[in-house]
């Protein structure tokens, strides 16, 4: 019991755990912001969206919209759904570009068939494995969620979930319910040999069979997979930025501008002033 107390899901239901105090961290704790952003970036990479065109995406457990901000930076439009009003209030304060909906994923996704070009979800799915009310059955809630998500996705699109599974039975339950709902795909594990960097991404395909991408830092990456993007090594640009807020450095800004240029968007030219602290003006 002692160790399980460290998992937020065991402490309180999500709408109670993510209260104002917890939500504040998402706008103030730079470490938290950095991690959420990095995981969002990897999730979008795994979505494998068509290049150079804006997509319409769903962010499940969008919370304060850190993940959504990354989607906006990439030029995408999004709808976020979350169960915590405190987290959504932070998203409003942060003036996110996406549209927000208050909802419980265990009740199903309230969207028309074929609405979204893809779905991401960062650190939220494990919450569905808990029964917070007498009437809650985790397998049933997972199935309701996955089957309604499946229908709300355009054929051929993907859903990528970064999650913190508690144990292998939980992973098994989640994948089984996703497959029952019609998805194919599976788990991608980044840095499987590092206890700290290890990350789980459930990659689901709606209405097509795809080749599951390789996890980063896994030793078996020499088995070439044809017509699949090579993912390894893409993360290393972060390693020079330790300790610094990723979203402020000059490199980060240059990179973001470059991404926007690639999308054919209007971007101001880079100058020696790019990414410099501005003097306050009144």
């Amino acid at each position: 019991m002692a160790s399980s107390c460290r998992r937020p899901e065991h402490m309180a239901p999500p709408d109670v755990f993510y209260n104002e105090e917890e939500a504040k961290k998402y706008s103030q704790n730079s470490r938290m912001i950095e991690i959420q952003t990095q995981m969002s970036e990897r999730a979008v990479e795994l979505l494998n969206l068509p290049e150079g065109q804006p997509s319409f995406l769903l962010d499940v457990g969008c919370g304060s919209g850190l993940s959504g901000d990354y989607l906006s930076e990439e030029g995408h439009y999004w709808v976020g759904i979350d169960i915590s009003t405190a987290m959504l209030d932070v998203a409003l304060d942060r003036e996110v570009e996406g549209d927000l909906v208050l909802g419980d994923m265990g009740h199903g996704m309230p969207f028309r068939a074929g609405t979204f070009d893809g779905c991401i979800s960062i650190s939220a799915l494990q919450w569905l494995c808990n029964a917070d009310k007498k009437s809650h059955s985790p397998p049933k809630r997972l199935f309701t969620f996955f089957s309604t998500l499946y229908s709300s996705l355009a054929r051929g699109s993907r859903a990528v979930f970064q999650l913190y599974p508690e144990n292998s039975e939980q992973l098994e339950l989640i994948t089984t319910q996703a497959m029952k709902a019609g998805f194919s795909g599976g788990m991608v594990v980044d840095y499987p040999n590092s206890s700290k960097a290890k990350k789980f991404f459930l990659c689901l395909f709606a209405g097509m069979t795809g080749v599951l991408p390789k996890g980063l830092g896994s030793e078996t990456s020499d088995r070439a997979v044809s017509n699949q993007v090579q993912y390894s090594g893409q993360r290393c640009r972060f390693k020079n930025m330790k300790g610094k807020s990723v979203k402020k450095g000059r490199d980060w800004i240059l990179e973001k501008k470059e991404r926007r240029r690639r999308q054919g968007r209007e971007v101001r030219a880079d100058t020696k002033y790019t990414g410099r602290q501005r003097r306050p003006h009144f």
């Binding site: 759904i81 169960i83 959504l88 209030d89 409003l92 927000l100 909906v101 208050l102 909802g103 419980d104 265990g106 009740h107 199903g108 309230p110 009310k133 009437s135 309701t144």
Partner: peptide, 14 residues
């Protein structure tokens, strides 16, 4: 409210 539709259901309606 505040631009956010509340789509939460009662457990009986879910």
């Amino acid at each position: 409210t505040k631009g956010i539709p509340n789509m939460l259901l009662n457990e009986d309606d879910a």
